[in-house]
Amino acid sequence: MRLAAPSNPWFSWEYLQRNSADVLTALQQHTTLTLEAVVLAFALALPLGALAHLRPRLGAPLLGVAGVMYTVPSLALFAVLAPYTGVGRTTVLVGLVAYALLVLIRNVLVGLQGVDPAVRDAARGMGYGRVRLLLTVELPQAVPSIVAGLRLATVSTVALVTVGVVVGYGGLGQLMFRGFRSNYHAEIMTATVLCLLLALVCDLVIAGVGRRLTPWARSTRPV
């Protein structure tokens, strides 16, 4: 990055002080949108992943459809959605959920299928039914993979929210675009740094929760 003229610096504390309310609004919009999208996608992905695991015949088309959705660029998806869901929050949210869904379903499925067959056999031998097996044995075993999926989905959702700028609801992307329009370097850089920080914080929080959820991972070291 080359040094900018002093009148238009990339980093400016003054900008942050003067526009703190504006920046905070954008950050809040960004954060709530991300959390809402990931929570919704997770609530959808858990049953869908379990269904795909229990009924493998349904699994392949489910992953196929999700894969096709994933290939469609976000700009195109927002463009296709916008005429129906309007310009604003709903469009962005629907798009974000669609993208987070594939990552989550795939990781739930990988986690459930990665359970050691011997463990599954043991549970079945103890008289566990299919549903109880899923809920009390397979699901806890799949937690590491699910947490990895959540981290991935959250980080990419944070980045993706910015594209919402095309429908006027892009959180920090809004700042980036405005900064670009008015050629205000500090605004772009502030929004970018905040985006990266938000992604990092979310990632660390989810990783921490994942560690708390799998105490056995800390005590028993894999040989």
Partner: peptide, 15 residues
């Protein structure tokens, strides 16, 4: 993955 595409594009365009 965490770096938004839009951020990079606007950064490059603005410079």
């Amino acid at each position: 993955r965490a770096l938004p595409t839009l951020a990079l594009l606007t950064l490059l365009a603005a410079s």
